[in-house]
């Protein structure tokens, strides 16, 4: 027996395959919306580990989408920094 439903995709926020799949199916969402609804990819690593997995799930749910259609969206900071570090910049 396999346990794919409970398999963690986003390690930082512990979002499972089952949660992502049901959210994607229910809301027919974009990659961005899926992340905002589930918090997948919004954790400590900034999605560096799970972003490509989430994109693949969107491709799976939306039959007409190709990998190139999902925009590569990143926001600074791309590495975790303290508020002190960011605040010091004038």
């Amino acid at each position: 027996m396999t346990n794919i439903e409970n398999m963690i995709i986003c390690r930082c926020e512990e979002v499972t395959y089952g949660q992502l799949l049901s959210t994607a199916n229910e809301h027919k969402c974009s990659a961005r919306e899926l992340k905002l609804r589930t918090r997948a990819g919004m954790g400590f690593c900034g999605g560096r580990t799970c972003r490509v997995s989430i994109d693949k799930m969107i491709e799976h749910v939306k039959p007409n989408i190709t990998p190139g259609d999902i925009p590569l969206k990143y926001q600074p900071p791309v590495r975790p920094v303290t508020f002190g570090t960011v605040g010091e910049i004038k």
Partner: peptide, 13 residues
């Protein structure tokens, strides 16, 4: 429980 995953600073685990 968690340990190292990427070992080069990407994953923050």
């Amino acid at each position: 429980p968690r340990g190292i995953y990427c070992n080069i600073g990407h994953c923050m685990e």
